[in-house]
Design a binder for these strands. Structure first.
Lengths: 347, 347
DNA sequence: CTGAAAGCGCTTACAG
DNA sequence: CTGAAAGCGCTTACAG
C-alpha cells in the first residue's frame, strides 16, 4: 500500500517549518496567517495526508483508544453492551479494541497486558466472577479501569456501571405474587457473583415484605444454562409441595424450565408462572413468550464509555490532584434500573 | 496511573546502552552475554516494564492491530464472525479494533479513515451492499482490506472470504422438493447483493434441475426482517395457486412467515414447508423449530483473520514484489461451505 | 559482545 | 506570525 505523506514533506512543499504545518493541521492556528494556512491545507488535501497517530500519541500520551474486555461476544448478553460502548466512544472520537476472555482469568490478565502495551487510555471490563482479591494483575495495571455488570474492589478501578439486580429480582418476584402465585421458587445460575447476590436479595425482599417464609428448598443454584433450567425445574416438580411459580436467574434457565414443564404437561402461565432475567434475542418468540426483567445493556455500555472518557479527559486537566483519589466519587458509581417486560401468548 | 519504566531508565540502572536493553527485551540477544542479559531481565521484571508499542510501531510500521468493520454487532449474524476474528487474531498476537457502520457508507468511510490513522495493519470489512464502484474512499485507503460475507472489486482488496450462498440455497430448495413439496416459493430479503444473487441462483438451479418452471409470482423480494416475512407469506397465501413450501432468505423472514401461517391456521411442516437461511441464536427454540441453512460464521471470521495476517506478514518479507500484484492469488478467495440443519418438532 | 548515533512522525515550549 | 530545537520511547544499521 502506498504510504502517506508526512508533515515534513508538506513543510518542504509549502516552504514553511514543520511546526507551522503541525499547528495548522491541528487547528491550533490562531496565530498563523490565512495565506500560510491555506497553502498548507491545499497541499495536505492534494496529497491525501493522514496524520500518524502513533507519533502523536508518543508525545501526547493519549491514544484515543479504549479497551473493552468481555467474556464472550457470542453470548447474547454482550453485543448490546459492546454496541453501546462503541457508539459513545466513536461519538467522542475514540476507538475500541475488543477482547473475549471466556471468563478465564489468564486471558483477562493477558489482555490487560496487551492493552497496556497498546497504551489504551482506559479499559471497560466485565470481569470473571472468579477473580480473587489480593495479588492481582489489576494492581499492576497502568491503565484506569471501569467495571461493568460485575463489581469488584481494586485501586485501579475508577468507576462502575452496574444493573440494579436487587430491584429487578424484587420486581420479578412481586409480579408473580401479584398475579396470585403463592409459592415462588428461584432457579439461580450462581450465588457467588455480586450480580447473583443482588438477585437473591431482591427475591428475599419481595417474600419478606409479604411476610412469606423463605424456603430453601425452593432455591436452586446451578449455572446460567438451559440444561440447568430443565434439571432444576424437574427437581422443583418433585418436591412434596411443588412451587407454583418460578423466578429464573436468566432467560436461558427460564427457557429450559419451560421446556421441562411442557414435558410434564404443565401450561405456562396457567399452571405455573415464569419470569426470567436478561433479555435474549428472540425471547419474545419462544412459546409462550417469556416475561422477563430487561437489563439496560445498551445503556450500560453507552454510560460506561461516557463515564470512562469523561474521567480520562478530566484526569488530563488536573492529573496531579487525581493521583491519589482512591475514594471513588459517588457519580462514578452508576446503578441502572431494570424493567419488567410482560409478554403474553398471542393465542 | 503510574507510568511505566522505559528502556532508557533500565539502561541506566544496568549500566549498559539502550541498544543492548532493546535487544535483550526483544530476544534478539544472541550476541549478548548471559550476565548482561540476566541483569537487564531482572531489572525489567522488578520495575514491571511494559514496552511502549507506539514507539515501536513508529519504527517498524507495524501495529499488530487489525480493524474489523461490520454493520452491527447486535445483529445476531455478526457476533460469531467477530469472535472468530478475535480468536485467530489474538492467537497470532494481534488486537482488533471493531466498528459498527449500520450499513451507512459515510460511517464506513469514517472508520476506514480512523483505522488508517491508527495505522492498523489491515482491515476485515463486511461492507454495505450500497457501496458504488467508481470514486470510492476505498481507493484512497492506505491499508490492505480483506472482505467478508459480501464481495466487491477494489484495488486495495487483497482477499475475500465468503459463504457459498448458491449451494446453500440449492440445498434448501432441494430439501423441500425431496420432501414432496411441489411449489416452492422464495421470500428474499434483497436481490442486489452478491449474497442475495447467489441465493437466487441456487433456488433457480434446484428447480431447473428438476425441470420445474420458475414462477416469478413465487419470488418475493423485500428486506431481511420478520415483518417482511409476515407480509410476504400473506401475499403468497393469496395467490390463486398458493405455494406449499417457502425458502426464506434468512431466519428472521422465516420466523415471520411461520407466525403468519399460524394465524391462517396452517401447520408447519404438515401443511407447508419452511427452510430458512442463516442461523440465529434460539432458532431451535422457535416452535416448530426452524430448519435452516447454517452459515459458517465463526469460521468465516477465523479464516479471514488468518488469511489477512498471513498476507500481511508475507507482504513484509517481500514488499517490493507485492506492490503491484493486483491479480488476486486464487488462495486468497475462500468460499466456505454451508450446512443444512434439520430441526424437527419434539412433539 | 556492546555502544553511539540516527531516525520513526509528530508536538510543544521557546525564541525571535 | 513563524522557525529551530528538543524530545516522546523505541529499533536498527554501523562501528569498534
Amino acid at each position: 500500500m502506498k504510504k502517506s505523506i508526512t508533515i515534513k514533506e508538506i513543510a518542504e512543499k509549502a516552504q514553511v517549518s514543520i511546526a507551522t504545518v503541525s499547528m495548522v493541521l491541528n487547528k491550533k492556528d490562531k496565530k498563523i496567517s490565512q495565506a500560510t494556512r491555506e497553502k498548507i491545507l491545499i497541499i495536505a488535501e492534494k496529497y491525501n495526508y493522514t496524520p500518524n497517530t502513533m507519533a502523536r500519541s508518543l508525545i501526547t500520551k493519549q491514544t484515543r483508544t479504549i479497551g473493552l474486555i468481555i467474556p464472550d461476544i457470542v453470548n447474547p448478553f454482550f453485543p448490546e453492551i459492546a454496541r453501546g460502548v462503541e457508539d459513545k466512544a466513536s461519538e467522542l472520537g475514540y476507538s475500541v479494541i475488543y477482547c473475549n476472555t471466556d471468563d478465564k482469568i489468564k486471558r483477562e490478565d493477558k489482555y490487560i497486558n496487551v492493552l497496556t502495551e497498546k497504551m489504551v487510555d482506559g479499559i471497560i471490563f466485565a470481569h470473571s466472577s472468579d477473580r480473587q482479591m489480593g495479588f492481582d494483575s489489576l494492581d499492576r495495571c497502568k491503565v484506569p479501569i471501569l467495571l461493568i455488570d460485575r463489581d469488584y474492589e481494586n485501586k485501579n478501578v475508577i468507576g462502575r456501571v452496574v444493573v440494579d439486580n436487587k430491584k429487578g429480582a424484587y420486581m420479578a418476584t412481586s409480579y408473580l405474587l401479584d398475579r396470585g402465585y403463592k409459592k415462588i421458587a428461584y432457579i439461580a445460575g450462581s450465588i457467588t457473583t455480586t450480580t447473583a447476590i443482588g438477585r437473591l436479595e431482591g427475591y428475599n425482599q419481595a417474600l419478606t415484605e409479604r411476610k412469606l417464609v423463605i424456603d430453601n428448598r425452593y432455591i436452586k443454584v446451578g449455572e446460567y444454562k438451559m440444561q440447568w433450567g430443565m434439571q432444576a425445574a424437574e427437581q422443583l416438580l418433585c418436591e412434596k409441595e411443588p412451587a407454583d411459580a418460578i423466578f429464573c436467574g436468566n432467560d436461558l434457565i427460564a427457557i429450559g424450565a419451560i421446556k421441562k414443564l411442557k414435558e410434564y404437561g404443565l401450561r405456562v402461565p396457567e399452571d405455573i408462572g415464569i419470569v426470567g432475567f436478561d433479555d435474549i434475542y428472540l425471547a419474545s418468540l419462544v412459546e409462550p413468550p417469556l416475561t422477563t426483567i430487561k437489563q439496560p445493556n445498551y445503556e450500560m455500555g453507552f454510560k460506561a464509555a461516557e463515564l470512562l472518557i469523561k474521567n480520562l479527559e478530566k484526569g488530563r486537566v488536573n492529573s496531579v490532584k487525581n493521583e491519589n483519589n482512591k475514594i471513588l466519587a459517588k457519580e462514578n458509581n452508576i446503578l441502572l434500573p431494570t424493567e419488567l417486560i410482560i409478554r403474553m401468548s398471542t393465542k
